[in-house]
Simulated scan of single mutants.
Amino acid sequence: MLGDFLWRRVIMWLKTMHRWSWKDIRKRLLGPHGAWLPITADDTELINLSRTPPITRYRYRGNTIPSPWPT
């Protein structure tokens, strides 16, 4: 859902910035077989969040974190 939200926000930003209509967006971002092309600018491509691996954080260590003070 986050990827869809990001895609829609970028499309709306492009429409506003360049004064494009939806027809202009489709002309630039639809491939020859009707599939959507990724949004790119120069060599930068909009990230596809559905293909990125899940982000893992540090696991909870609780009392196993060593104390810097002597006991």
Rank of each mutant, 00 (worst) to 15 (best):
Trp22Phe: 05
Asn63Gln: 08
Pro38Tyr: 12
Lys15Met: 15
Trp7Asp: 04
Thr64Ile: 03
Glu45Thr: 15
Glu45Asn: 02
Asn48Gln: 12
Thr44Val: 15
Pro70Lys: 15
Ser50Gly: 03
Leu49Phe: 13
Lys15Asn: 02
Met17Thr: 12
Ile25Pro: 00
Pro53Cys: 07
Trp7Ile: 02
Ala35Cys: 05
Phe5Ser: 06
Lys27Ser: 11
Met1Val: 06
Trp36Arg: 05
Tyr58His: 11
Pro32Ser: 10
Ser67Trp: 03
Ile39Pro: 00
Thr16Tyr: 09
Trp69Asn: 07
Glu45Tyr: 03
Met1Gly: 08
Arg51Tyr: 01
Arg61Ile: 02
Tyr60Leu: 09
Asp24Val: 04
Arg26Tyr: 10
Thr44Trp: 12
Ile65Lys: 15
Pro53Asn: 06
Arg19Ala: 09
Thr71Asp: 11
Asp4Arg: 11
Ile39Glu: 02
Gly34Cys: 06
Arg57Trp: 06
Ile47Tyr: 06
Asp4Ala: 10
Ala35Ser: 11
Leu2Asn: 06
Trp20Pro: 00
Pro66Glu: 09
Asn63Lys: 13
Thr56Asn: 05
Trp22Asn: 11
Leu46Gly: 01
Pro53Thr: 04
His33Glu: 12
Trp13Ile: 01
Ile25Arg: 01
Ser50Arg: 13
Arg51Lys: 14
Arg26Thr: 10
Thr16Gln: 12
Arg59Gly: 07
Arg28Trp: 03
Asp42His: 12
Pro70Ser: 15
Met17Arg: 13
Leu2Trp: 03
Ile11His: 01
